[in-house]
Simulated scan of single mutants.
Amino acid sequence: VPRHPDVLVDPVENVLAVIARCRPHEQALAVWESALRQGLVVRESLRLLPLAPVARVLLEECSLHSDSGLETVIPVRLRFLRLPIRQQVWLAGHAVDFVIGDRLVLQVDGGHHVGVQRRSDIAHDARLKLLGYHVIRIDYVQIMTRWSEVHDVIVRAVAQGLHRAR
């Protein structure tokens, strides 16, 4: 978007274009999804701009279902499984963060999953298990610094067929 040379602040669209070129894919995608989710830009308007190919890829990959950057990286990191990964699916009275395949639930816990929220999460996990779902619950530290451990648990669950309806 053209900007007058005396203006110090770029439009959001320009910032997103720079981020697409300068940041790793996961980080750029998290920023793009956040801008769309917060209504700072509109997908249809972005499609009309002369975006670079890397920005076009980000635009098409953006989901409005991620509640955080943590939730943005999960589908990117698990794409190699070639399984359906659905976000914000309503099950047993609550939304779950991800359903991998038919029955593998992946819940991402932020810092607010304590006290009453934590007790509610535990109760919901129990209801899901009684309905035949398999629940894996992970947090920020695991996603950002111990991904290899999370990856190992998820691929082992898939290898055991825990993602399939029985």
Rank of each mutant, 00 (worst) to 15 (best):
residue 1 V to N: 06
residue 3 R to K: 08
residue 4 H to V: 02
residue 5 P to A: 05
residue 5 P to R: 11
residue 5 P to E: 06
residue 7 V to H: 13
residue 7 V to E: 11
residue 7 V to F: 04
residue 9 V to T: 11
residue 10 D to Q: 12
residue 12 V to E: 07
residue 15 V to G: 07
residue 16 L to K: 01
residue 17 A to D: 04
residue 19 I to A: 12
residue 20 A to I: 02
residue 20 A to H: 04
residue 21 R to T: 03
residue 21 R to V: 01
residue 21 R to A: 09
residue 24 P to V: 06
residue 25 H to E: 06
residue 26 E to W: 05
residue 27 Q to G: 05
residue 27 Q to Y: 01
residue 29 L to N: 07
residue 31 V to C: 09
residue 31 V to N: 01
residue 33 E to S: 10
residue 34 S to C: 15
residue 35 A to L: 09
residue 38 Q to Y: 05
residue 40 L to V: 06
residue 41 V to I: 13
residue 42 V to S: 05
residue 42 V to Y: 09
residue 42 V to I: 12
residue 44 E to P: 00
residue 45 S to M: 03
residue 45 S to W: 08
residue 46 L to M: 15
residue 47 R to N: 01
residue 52 A to Y: 02
residue 52 A to G: 00
residue 52 A to D: 05
residue 52 A to T: 00
residue 53 P to Y: 02
residue 53 P to F: 00
residue 59 L to G: 02
residue 60 E to D: 14
residue 61 E to G: 06
residue 62 C to W: 04
residue 64 L to F: 08
residue 67 D to N: 15
residue 73 V to M: 15
residue 74 I to Y: 10
residue 75 P to L: 11
residue 77 R to I: 07
residue 78 L to C: 08
residue 83 L to W: 10
residue 84 P to Q: 05
residue 86 R to Q: 14
residue 86 R to G: 00
residue 87 Q to E: 06
residue 89 V to I: 10
residue 92 A to D: 09
residue 94 H to K: 08
residue 97 D to F: 05
residue 97 D to K: 09
residue 97 D to E: 07
residue 99 V to I: 12
residue 99 V to M: 08
residue 100 I to H: 02
residue 106 L to T: 12
residue 106 L to Y: 10
residue 114 V to K: 06
residue 116 V to N: 07
residue 117 Q to T: 15
residue 118 R to M: 11
residue 119 R to W: 07
residue 119 R to Q: 15
residue 120 S to E: 14
residue 121 D to N: 08
residue 121 D to E: 11
residue 125 D to C: 05
residue 127 R to L: 13
residue 127 R to T: 08
residue 128 L to F: 06
residue 130 L to R: 12
residue 130 L to W: 04
residue 130 L to V: 09
residue 133 Y to F: 15
residue 134 H to V: 12
residue 134 H to C: 03
residue 137 R to C: 07
residue 138 I to W: 00
residue 139 D to L: 02
residue 141 V to N: 12
residue 143 I to D: 09
residue 144 M to L: 14
residue 146 R to Y: 08
residue 151 H to I: 02
residue 154 I to T: 02
residue 157 A to D: 04
residue 160 Q to V: 02
residue 161 G to E: 02
residue 163 H to V: 04
residue 166 R to W: 11
residue 166 R to C: 06
